[in-house]
Design a protein around this nucleic acid. Structure first.
Length: 369
RNA sequence: GCCGCGGUAGUACAGCCCGGCAUAGUAUGCGGGCCUGUCAAGCCCGUGACCCGGGUUCAAAUCCCGGCCGCGGCGCCA
């Protein structure tokens, strides 16, 4: 690595300029030839690039991803603070997983069993109940699922929001929708994104009204337009998500679509069930170009109902007593959502793999560098 | 976790199906040279590899088994 100083003059080279060096300072001398050429690093396979990430990211096209990610996180913070949300910082070492399932990483905490937080879910709700009213957090989340896909990481960054005194899940969707509209507008003119724009198309289709369809409507659309039949009351599969992304684009000129009123059986116990139709919920997903980037819902804020929900899920209330306690002294109607930072970046920049949107990705096999 | 495909120089590929006909090929990189205001390009020379462990066979990069790793899909999910 070296530092050159001199005069930049016009030259005959491809770049049209050349530096007439007056001084060359050798900063450090490599101990071996470079294994990955920064200028062409993206021609190598992703796993090789990740092995030599410090070289790969010297490629301006790669570094642009992280400049954009930094910008995006900043805009998230900016937008929600602007709207009265308070940034919170919740523990990542926790006593229980959100659903109490096996998808958490166990850690030994002074001889006791603890886990790496798979979401700030419980604590952001607590913060709302505590009177912070509207909160958000940007923080790491951990998932111990052995996924081998282009959209899963075992460690990623969650963009979480939670808001109190809502009228319904629409309030949460409204603000998410507005956030992406804001993002799109900001991305258009931002000078700091100049380099990023050289490599990536930053235009976003966010119509005045982002489509919202119930999952029951989605079943119909899938069946009629795409000849894709999903079992009733089941979750969308990846192909279905892609179809719905296509549907949103063609029918609404939108990169986004909300799918609402998910079945109770595929949603966590803290989700509020639909009034009069307890088999359905006020839970929704947000699809961005056919990929789930956010999950949200109105939460159940009534203590007795939470107990019923837990029982219906076959879960032991005592394991979640610390969480249930939050609701013992009154809780406002509230709701929120969790978004995946890397997934948003992946979809926004049309990257092929979420790993590209993470400086040092962790997956079931990769632990270094 | 399950299924499919794969693992050959620093990198990207070919060869493997039909085992010996290979001193394992090509491109690029790297080292040197020629050429040339410089760089790049072009040309020449050189450098450097069969994932690991078993098995089959006279003979394995090539066939079989196991492991590890990689890619993708699924389940699941942000």
């Amino acid at each position: 690595m070296a530092c050159f100083s001199g005069t930049l003059v016009e030259g005959k080279s491809k770049l049209r300029y050349e530096l007439q060096a007056k001084e060359v300072m050798m900063l450090t001398r490599p101990v071996e030839p470079i294994p990955l050429e920064p200028a062409t690093s993206t021609e190598a396979q992703l796993n090789v690039r990740l092995d030599y990430r410090w070289l790969d990211v010297r490629n301006p096209k790669v570094s642009a991803v992280f400049q954009f990610e930094s910008w995006l996180a900043q805009k998230f913070r900016e937008y929600f603070r602007m709207n009265g949300f308070v940034e919170i910082f919740t523990p990542k070492i926790v006593a229980a997983g959100t659903e109490g399932g096996a998808e958490v990483f166990p850690v030994i905490y002074f001889g006791r069993e603890a886990y790496l937080a798979q979401s700030p879910q419980f604590y952001k709700q607590m913060a709302v109940i505590a009177g912070l009213e509207r909160v958000f957090e940007i923080g790491p989340v951990f998932r111990a699922e052995a996924h081998h896909t282009v959209k899963h990481l075992t460690e990623f960054h969650g963009l979480d929001i939670e808001m109190g005194f809502i009228e319904g899940p629409e309030d949460v969707m409204d603000i998410l929708e507005r956030f992406f509209r804001y993002l799109s507008k900001e991305a258009e003119g931002d000078e700091s994104l100049k380099v990023v724009r050289q490599y990536y198309d930053l235009s976003l289709r966010v119509p005045d009204r982002v489509p919202r369809i119930t999952i029951r409507e989605a079943y119909e659309v899938l069946k009629e337009r795409y000849n894709k039949e999903l079992p009733y009351m089941e979750d969308l599969d990846p192909q279905a998500e892609k179809y719905l992304g296509d549907y949103a684009l063609k029918e609404y000129d939108s990169d986004f679509i909300f799918v609402t009123e998910y079945p109770w059986k595929v949603r966590p116990f803290y989700t509020m069930r639909k009034e009069g139709e307890p088999e359905w919920t006020y839970g929704f997903d947000l699809l961005f170009r056919g990929l789930e980037i956010a999950t949200g819902s109105q939460r159940e804020h009534r203590y007795e109902r939470l107990l019923i929900n837990l029982r219906d899920k076959g879960m032991k209330p005592d394991r979640f007593q610390f969480y249930l306690n939050f609701f013992r002294h009154g809780a406002p109607p509230h709701g929120g959502a969790g978004l995946g930072l890397e997934r948003i970046v992946k979809q926004y920049l049309n990257l092929e793999n979420v790993r590209e949107a993470r400086l040092l990705p962790r997956d079931p096999e990769r632990l270094v560098p």
